[in-house]
């Protein structure tokens, strides 16, 4: 009896502690190992299944698709840039061609116009020259006629003067000769 009472407090204290905490330090309480392992297996197993069968392939696909799409877009952009460059090249070629053509046309027009002007000018000059020549001819004939008249008048005057002075008709041939000499002297 005394032995019993002596033992009881220690035992009861131990069992109370055991009942309250399982062990003094929960992580080392062996009795809790089994349910933890069972539930770790269940939860980790399910999670592994979900990740490997559903989540990861899905994420991988999305990332892969995006990567492909970006690569495609970059390719397309490069293609568009190439097309743009080609268009610019073509435009510049056309522009240079047009500029050359315009230049040629301008040159041609200028030449044609200057040729026409030249022809007209020549025609005009020829006409003018002809007119000048005609005028000169006319002037010369008029001058000759005038001179002829002057001679006649001079001869008549000289004959009349002589007649008045000498009372005698002068020799017409001599008068004419003298008038010629005087006129030649005058120039």
């Amino acid at each position: 009896m005394s032995q019993d009472t002596h033992m009881t407090p220690e035992l009861s204290e131990g069992t109370v502690q055991q009942a309250e905490h399982g062990s003094n330090f929960p992580p080392f309480d062996v009795t809790t190992f089994e349910p933890q392992l069972v539930w770790l297996l269940i939860t980790f197993g399910i999670l592994y299944y979900l990740m490997s069968k559903i989540a990861l392939p899905r994420i991988g696909t999305v990332i892969e698709e995006r990567r492909d799409r970006i690569a495609d877009d970059l390719d397309q952009a490069a293609q568009f840039k190439q097309e743009t460059d080609d268009a610019i090249q073509a435009y510049e070629t056309a522009l240079a061609e047009a500029r050359g053509k315009a230049h040629a046309i301008a040159q041609e027009t200028r030449e044609r116009l200057s040729a026409q002007t030249e022809t007209k000018r020549e025609a005009l000059e020829a006409e003018l020259a002809k007119k000048v020549e005609e005028a000169e001819t006319r002037i010369a004939s008029t001058k000759d006629a005038a001179l002829q008249n002057v001679r006649t008048v001079a001869g008549d005057v000289a004959g009349a003067v002589i007649t008045q002075l000498l009372g005698d008709d002068a020799d017409a041939a001599q008068i004419s000769q003298a008038v010629d000499a005087a006129m030649n002297q005058e120039g």
Partner: peptide, 21 residues
């Protein structure tokens, strides 16, 4: 015979599993 009691530890394992999912 296997002690598969649902404990507070199991609860948080399950919560973790659902959260990651």
């Amino acid at each position: 015979g296997i002690d598969a009691s649902f404990t507070n530890s199991s609860l948080w394992m399950v919560i973790t599993m659902f959260a990651v999912t």
